[in-house]
Design a protein around this nucleic acid. Structure first.
Lengths: 189, 189
DNA sequence: TGCGCTCTGTACCATTTGGTACACTGCAAT
DNA sequence: ATTGCAGTGTACCAAATGGTACAGAGCGCA
């Protein structure tokens, strides 16, 4: 009934923080942008994240990583039905990126020089995705090196689809990309 | 023998300007970065680009657009040997992006909110690439709608390959992407 | 009631920001 | 030689930057 006006815990600012970094990039995101978006003053912000912007971005990346780990990577690695796990990955990805209307923060941070600050997190995100998908493809019957190549192609396509969808301001470019992947990943099993 | 210490004309600062925007993004690129990289003081900078950062970025985008138009798109549209034109596109793309060590400025600008300032240029760059490639694929014997889809897939893959190569700090992820495209674009003709 | 703690707003800081003003340099045409 | 103008360096500006200090607010608990 009585809903709080502002987010209270460190945890629930993370999504809003993520949106700011998505929209402005790391260097471009000012504390003014951040306080405006989160509703938190500098006081609270530096209370939760004594390390400033850098710690905020790290926390957001950890949060994202955790989501993908449990929702996508683990099923890909462990689900006894790899076909179902891949379908779940595609649907989850479509939902997470809002069918192409939302951009990938990891991709955004990877492009600038800021990449170097978060190098380990950024490369970990993509290599774990690729390896988890390769694992599922292997269990689906693909030969190992072919599975690795196909998995890389899929991760590449997803990132590219987000860039193009945003550049064209046409989310359908992303959903078409996912459809192509659905065919390519599931048909040859 | 006597080489000039600094770039002189508006034209030859454009590559250096482009690098700054690539490395920092639009919002993140400060005038200090720009003067440092180009060797030009604010005086000269604002003499060449009275509109400031925005005009600089527009000039760089025009420059890039012109390069791709003459080196890639026109051959794709007009070369009587579409197979050769596609090979030229792949080789030119590999060279332009330094085999994955360089990032695509158009892609970088597309991801942030700054996209809106340059919306027409950004979408034009990708749509013209896709349509030119689709034209070559048609002449190679593909059915028109299939050619359009394949062309979109290629443009998506190139952008994605750049993101992944940069995130992993592994340019070979980009060259592998180009190899996959070489097969897929040229084999089914 | 009063203690202790997390959380928050505000005032403040030095530095940097994008941008302007302007006086100067050098050279090309007269 | 003089003029004119493209190109340049420097000083300057108000505003915004990331970050700090600190005095409180609110609340759980004794």
């Amino acid at each position: 009934m009585n809903q709080k006006k502002t987010a209270r815990t460190r945890e629930d600012v993370l999504p809003e923080l993520g949106e700011v970094f998505r929209e402005h990039g790391f260097e471009g995101a000012s504390l003014a942008d951040i306080t405006a978006r989160t509703g938190l003053g500098k006081g609270s912000l530096y209370h939760f994240f004594p390390g400033g912007k850098e710690e905020m971005a790290e926390a957001v990346l950890d949060h994202i990583d955790h989501w993908f780990e449990t929702e996508v990577y683990q099923p890909l690695r462990e689900d006894e039905d790899p076909r179902a796990a891949i379908t779940r990955m595609l649907d989850g990805t479509d939902a997470y990126f809002r069918s192409g209307r939302r951009v990938c923060l990891v991709g955004v941070l990877a492009l600038n020089l800021t990449r170097d600050r978060f190098a380990a997190r950024l490369s970990g995100y993509f290599t774990r995705w690729r390896d988890a998908l390769a694992s599922a493809l292997c269990r689906l019957g693909h030969r190992p090196e072919l599975a690795g190549d196909l998995a890389e192609e899929a991760v590449v396509a997803i990132q590219g689809g987000l860039v193009i969808a945003r550049a064209l301001d046409d989310p359908s470019a992303f959903t078409r990309t996912l459809e192509r992947l659905r065919v390519r990943l599931l048909d040859a099993g």
